[in-house]
């Protein structure tokens, strides 16, 4: 089966982000950018399906700026067969991204679309579910296990307090949680080979996709800073402080 993996270029998870002085957003100048960690898990899952002989072709798709080609090349180095960049310099909301992905799904007709459950920048946790709504596919969100059985996909999901397993008709949408797998590293020969793999660029306009949004960000602020605490010298003092000063035990 053909598998589509949607990925996002985000600020690296080790970077301490700073809010801009004019409160217009977060300062991303000269900051290390990476493949979103949950998207890395999505790519890995697709590769494992190919290694099991279930996936026949893996297409990595990103919706974002020109520079997102770097993350697509990473996906290609990890094992995706080809890549598509829906190029836009606008910062799109999840619904617009889902619409762009829907256009790609219509064109490519994959049996399975795997996405990260959320991006660590906007923290929306929406795109996979929205793509499922737009395509009419079933959805297996926050997946910790994915098994293909004929034309059914069994997905074990991380839910509050435990795990839930659902059986989905294919085609279907899966969004990944942390426990699904442990992503591999790209080898140097594969990084070299990835440079020769096909990467196609389209625009939302060419796909006939509206990027209009009903949401506007008015300002972005730093969260309230924690006031500096104190050092205690013994366990007894700590217990005393927690009981009488903080009153939390």
């Amino acid at each position: 089966m053909k598998v589509l993996v949607a990925i996002k270029r985000v600020v690296d998870y080790n970077v301490k982000v700073r809010v801009k002085a004019d409160n217009s957003g977060v300062d991303l100048a000269n900051v290390k950018m990476s493949l979103n960690p949950f998207c890395e898990i999505a790519v890995e899952e697709a590769i494992r399906l190919k290694e099991k002989g279930i996936a026949t072709e893996i297409i990595a798709v990103a919706v974002g700026p020109t520079a997102a080609q770097e993350q697509l090349r990473t996906a290609l180095a990890l094992g995706a067969d080809r890549a598509i960049l829906v190029e836009t310099s606008d910062e799109l909301n999840s619904l617009a991204v889902a619409k762009a992905l829907k256009a790609i799904v219509d064109k490519e007709q994959p049996q399975l679309v795997i996405l990260g459950k959320q991006a660590i920048d906007s923290d929306n946790n929406q795109t996979g579910q929205m793509l499922a709504a737009l395509t009419g596919f079933a959805q297996g969100t926050f997946a910790s296990k994915v098994e293909v059985a004929g034309d059914t996909l069994n997905v074990t999901r991380e839910i509050d307090g435990g795990l839930q397993t659902v059986a989905l008709n294919l085609p279907a949408i899966v969004t990944t949680d942390l426990r699904l797998n442990e992503p591999r590293y790209a080898s140097l020969p594969n990084i070299m080979k990835a440079k020769k793999k096909p990467l196609e660029t389209v625009t939302p306009d060419a796909l006939g996709v509206s990027t209009a949004s009903t949401t506007k960000t008015l300002k972005v602020e730093a969260p309230a800073a924690r006031s500096a605490g104190i050092k205690v010298t013994s366990v007894a003092e700590l217990v005393e402080k927690l009981k009488t000063e903080a009153k939390v035990i």
Binding site: S94, L95, N124, N125, M130, A133, Q139, T141, E158, I159
Partner: peptide, 21 residues
């Protein structure tokens, strides 16, 4: 997990953005 699973699907069917969390 139920709210996060269901609501974006609702938003997309209504053709509006969702505001999360």
């Amino acid at each position: 997990t139920n709210g996060k699973n269901i609501l974006p699907r609702v938003a997309a069917l209504l053709d509006v953005d969702q505001i999360s969390e």
